[in-house]
């Protein structure tokens, strides 16, 4: 309840403030509180992702967007009457809808009594992994997740088309670094290996706990971004040259799609992992491992592409 109260306050403040920097920071806090709320509601995977993506990636992106545009918003000249009317009507329909909705937490709600029981009863057996979210995400609804990977790839492609990409390797150590700060650099040097290691853990541990390819890709990219910020455009770009990122992003989609096509060639439906092994559960395991790897690679490459595209644009401006 307190969390929801905070969210309301932030939403109201975001409407009123004209300083966009403050608005974006509030958005970050909003996402983080939402993540906490998701923890409360037993959605650990979602909380993890919301914290990494909503509070992390989105906020950073918005800040770089602000850096390249302008920080202060003009006082609007138009009348707020029409928007208020639209929002009022929409809100009224929503409130009306809620009157007949099952209560939060109702064990007799249709969401709990249809389809869900099947997953809870069978996912650990059929797919063979304790984390039902991963089982549903990567197997039962693996095709949605394939689409999700393609959405990320599309976003990367769109940013490349709009802002361009840097070709080849730009090894210019020190350029664009935050500054010559010894403490910062030492801390980053210690942190980056831990971050990358943690990303690998998240990547391959998604079957058992919260996590998976998406979160891992984000964290892995964060490690590179951090190194880039502290040390400038140097070694991080030698390890993964910016000119190769779009190929990596495409590769991730092809790995995921490739698993699907392999099943297809084996005479099974698209993305049927049982084609991968004689033992269906082992096939599921292998399939989930491979598609999560594809997701991780694409997400990592796209997030880094977007970061490089925005920072490259900033240097020119």
């Amino acid at each position: 309840m307190t969390l929801l109260g905070f969210l309301v306050l932030i939403a109201v403040a975001a409407i009123r403030l004209r300083d966009l920097f403050a608005v974006v920071m509030l958005f970050g806090v909003y996402s983080l509180l939402t993540a906490a709320l998701f923890m409360n509601l037993d959605a650990v995977d979602v909380a993890f992702t919301e914290a990494a993506v909503g509070a992390g990636v989105s906020t950073v992106l918005m800040l770089s967007g602000l850096h390249l545009t302008s920080r202060w918003e003009q006082r609007p000249k138009r009348s707020p009457l029409l928007p208020l009317l639209v929002v009022g009507v929409t809100g009224a329909v929503l409130v009306h809808a809620m009157l007949d909705a099952p209560f939060v937490g109702d064990p007799q709600a249709p969401v709990q009594t249809h389809v869900t029981p099947y997953y809870i009863a069978n996912a650990p057996v059929e797919v063979g992994m304790p984390n039902m979210v991963t089982a549903v995400l990567a197997s039962y609804r693996g095709y949605d997740t394939f689409g999700e990977t393609v959405v990320i790839f599309t976003a990367g492609l769109a940013v490349m088309l709009l802002l361009g990409i840097q070709q080849g390797t730009h090894n210019r150590p020190g350029l664009n670094a935050i500054g010559d700060q010894l403490v910062l650099r030492s801390v980053v040097k210690l942190l980056v290996p831990a971050i990358l290691l943690y990303a690998l853990y998240v990547q391959f541990h998604g079957d058992f706990g919260a996590g998976g390819g998406f979160q891992a890709g984000v964290i892995f990219a964060t490690g590179f971004v951090l190194y880039d910020l502290a040390f400038g455009e140097g070694d991080a770009r030698t390890v993964v040259p910016p000119g190769w990122l779009h190929r990596l992003a495409a590769l991730g989609v092809l790995i995921y799609g490739g698993v699907g096509v392999y099943a297809l060639l084996a005479g099974k439906p698209f993305l049927d992992y049982s084609a991968l092994s004689a033992d269906p559960v082992a096939g599921q395991h292998l399939g989930v491992l491979l598609v999560e790897l594809g997701v991780g690679i694409t997400v990592f490459a796209v997030i880094l592409t977007i970061f490089y595209a925005f920072s490259g644009r900033g240097r020119r401006a």
Partner: peptide, 20 residues
Amino acid sequence: EHLPVLVVIIPLLAAPLCVL
């Protein structure tokens, strides 16, 4: 029998191929 999914994944997988 795979035609329903082929009509979607052929263009879908052509996209990363174009990028490569």
